[in-house]
Amino acid sequence: MELAIKIENLSKDYPGRHALTNVSFSVKKGSIHGFLGPNGAGKSTTMKIISGLIPASSGNFEIFGKVGFLPEHPPVYPNMNVRDYLKFILAIYSSEKSLPAAGTLERVMEKTGLSDVKDRLIGNLSKGYQQRVGIAQAIIHSPEIIILDEPTVGLDPVAIAEIRALILELKKDHTILFSSHQLHDVELLCSDITLINHGEIVVSGKLEEILSSLKTNMSSKARVLNFNEQKSQEMLATFSPDLESISYEADPEQKNYLVSMVTKGKKDLRTELTKFLAHFEIGLLEFITERGDLEDLFKRMEK
């Protein structure tokens, strides 16, 4: 497997604080790699080190190709218009050895959907568009690897979806490493993920493998009209041995019952459970599956 980024035992100490401790992971060429962790876990520090902005205290990393970087705050000049800004970036990022191909500017603006706003001042653009300018800035010198630090943070849902589509589009030509809090983004976009907490790697690997290793127990909640001990015993008997436990409580305010079920193993019992609960004596109102996904993982990491 060809690698794009290889990080080995990277450590970074700020005065009086360990930011990173022995961070090791690798990013496959042509993949979208999600980099996850709570605030202050060391995501930005790692990305700054990889992009060559700050040196590591120890350890080493290899980058196979040019790197484009979008930091947490898009590095834009509010007083410049989009076109002049990208032209300037192109000029200072291209060396004599690799002169930019003609039409690069137009192509990048087309790709990032900036053609319509190219004459507007960046400071007057919406946050979503500023983020696009930031992404355009990262890809303008046609790097093989793009590092995006929380590209969807602070955007409205429509803009998030657009940025997500853009990242998928970029996958064709680039390897992408991006950090996010948006677990939903990561699930939709990434093939591999790395989780980091308190400056240490928690887990790194294929998204599906990590998710399936988590899905040992699935818990569901149902809101029903009527429920009692007898029903609960009946349910346990019907679904044993796949149903591990069942509990219920009355909700006097909404005049209904909340039933919590935990299933054992990886078997998906949702259809059977809903069929049972939909019985006229019980009356199913709502059925929720607690997502045994990255959110779980995040919560566990916090503990």
Binding site: S51, L53, F69, P71, Y77, P78, I89
Partner: peptide, 10 residues
Amino acid sequence: QHTLDLLLRS
């Protein structure tokens, strides 16, 4: 404006 890093990486 966080643009100094942009220049330094160029």
